[in-house]
Design a protein around this nucleic acid. Structure first.
Lengths: 330, 330
DNA sequence: TTGTATGCGTTATCAA
DNA sequence: TTGATAACGCATACAA
């Protein structure tokens, strides 16, 4: 059975189809009588307006593409939940696109563009700056935003947590706690956060792994990477030569590192090795980890993103300040 | 700058707009010469086909709505990743809808329907059977599927893991390991899994909490619920009267229970209290938990869902068998 | 192979 | 307030 259209309802109600449209348009000028008549007929035919046709006519889909490339990060889920919920609260719908080796960012951006989304949000992580420019949409393309990651691209505002301030704050805390031989573990992503770490933490410590490369690694980030990196380091370096605190680029890495340090090398955290994460993912609060970490102001970031999408705020890069969450691990 | 349309390209190339369409339609009959001419003109004008208009004309959006109501479950993320990746591999796009107290399932289904999605997948959890019938779409509405949860609704196939078999397998394992005083902890969701637990596990154990109510709880499921339930139980029941193994409806509950048992009551797992989860969420594999749990065959489930959406398989309820994953906690 | 007419279901604009 | 005409961008069916 085909769905009823405004035309069908019009005939059923004995009016023109434009009157039907008006009955479904808030604030349209229509008499109560006609409206009632139309709604009744619509009810009988089980009519529901076709938003696709509306979008074509109004040139607005109220749909926002959200590109995610790093599902492995446990931090992503609550962030994504907030984002979708907030979009929905504004009448926007989320088109979720999963970036991976089989589906590139270019493919995703092109697809989203052709589907006439109102905006594209690159949510995080392994996007390189070049990625945002090689799609050549230009002319009439949707506005793009980078969330939870920095970007230097002209015309692509970034909404992120100030990594430099964050690293400085963490470093200050660690110094005060008496740690003197810090190291840090970089992940595959968050290029700038890593660079910030390289600038700040490196001043009093050395990278544990990965960070000797100046480019972002293509692989997905995960707990296992952290475990393997820690395993490599701890089995290679003698106890007396080891760092005394490990700063990880994100919590997933920290969990993996802590797992290995404790269960494979019998180290006590923080006594033998202190560990700091970044993101304040859910497991960080669990007694099983009790991870000292840094929390991004996700609420503010989501709000800022949506304000920019709706043009309630200027579309320009903003940095918010997060906060250190101290637990037992450092 | 407005985007170029097929008409613009037609003029630029000196052909009719239908020839332009043909140039962008694989397998259409068009000479190489015209095609080249069109593609060149399209390139010049930066033309990209409007999929919205195509959808309106073809009556197919290649868009699938995925309704999620339980983002707190750590199991959801990798499952969702698989689902979206597999949909994309078939040329389908995910419309992610977040069901919560501010955005009901009815609202979501209506919205998805009006946006002309090709299918609606209810991914999850706290959906009641009644929820699937009170939208009265009928006539021309998209097909609906229930993923990772059971359903008795006529015309709404469920793709799930066989809970009865799972519980039986877990029960058998626990018996063999010598546990004799099992209890189980039900969450807010997975009604049938709970019922199955009530039927199977209850035969040799009593519910720990929540399960005395016959209806599903409205609250979201989370680690904290498990922690609180365990806290209530352990502080109320004397050590000699306690169960010896706790079967949790999902891993999140199990993590919370394990946290409390160990850190607040000093219990050793599994010696003082064994714990079993359900889902094999990522942290279950970590040494910090080492949770014995049950893994759903997510690959099969995702594949089955997509086969039904694309009508490559009959649209009828299917149950797949998962597998017990034994670790240290029981 | 190419061009033409018509339809998809709605909105915008104007006339009655 | 209501009806009519045009437009949104593309696809289908048919004619040339």
């Amino acid at each position: 059975m085909k769905r009823a259209t405004a035309q069908n309802v019009a005939i059923e109600a004995g009016v023109s189809k434009w009157t039907v449209i008006r009955a479904f348009t808030p604030g349209a000028s229509i008499t109560e009588a006609s409206k009632a008549k139309v709604l009744e007929a619509a009810e009988r035919l089980n009519y529901r307006p076709n938003l696709l046709a509306r979008s074509l006519a109004t040139n607005s889909t109220h749909q926002v593409a959200v590109l995610v490339d790093d599902f492995a990060n446990p931090h992503k889920l609550p962030f994504l939940e907030k984002l979708t919920a907030s979009l929905q609260a504004e009448g926007l719908v989320t088109m979720l696109i999963n970036i991976n080796e089989h589906y590139s960012h270019v493919h995703a951006i092109l697809n989203a563009d052709q589907r006439q989304v109102d905006a594209i949000v690159l949510f995080g992580t392994a996007f390189h700056d070049e990625m945002l420019t090689d799609h050549k949409l230009g002319r009439g393309g949707p506005p793009m935003f980078v969330l939870a990651r920095d970007s230097q691209i002209e015309g692509v505002p970034a909404i992120s947590c100030d990594a430099v301030v964050a690293i400085a704050e963490i470093g200050k805390y660690l110094l005060e706690k008496g740690y003197r031989r810090p190291g840090f573990m970089a992940g595959a992503v968050h290029c700038l956060r890593r660079l910030a770490g390289g600038g700040t933490l490196r001043s009093f410590g050395e990278p544990l792994s990965g960070s000797n490369s100046s480019r972002c690694l293509p692989s997905a980030i995960a707990q296992e990477s952290g475990a393997q990196a820690a395993r490599d380091y701890l089995s290679k370096i003698a106890p007396e030569d080891r760092i005394d605190v490990l700063m990880c680029e994100n919590d997933a890495l920290a969990f993996g590192a802590m797992d290995v340090a404790r269960s494979e090398f019998g180290l006590r955290v923080p006594n033998d090795l202190a560990i700091v994460g970044f993101d304040n993912a859910a497991p960080a609060a669990s007694p099983a980890y009790g991870l000292t970490t840094y929390e991004q102001p996700t609420d503010q970031m989501v709000k800022a993103t949506i304000d920019m999408i709706l043009e309630r705020a200027p579309r320009e890069t903003v940095n918010f300040q997060g906060k250190l969450v101290v637990r037992g691990s450092a």
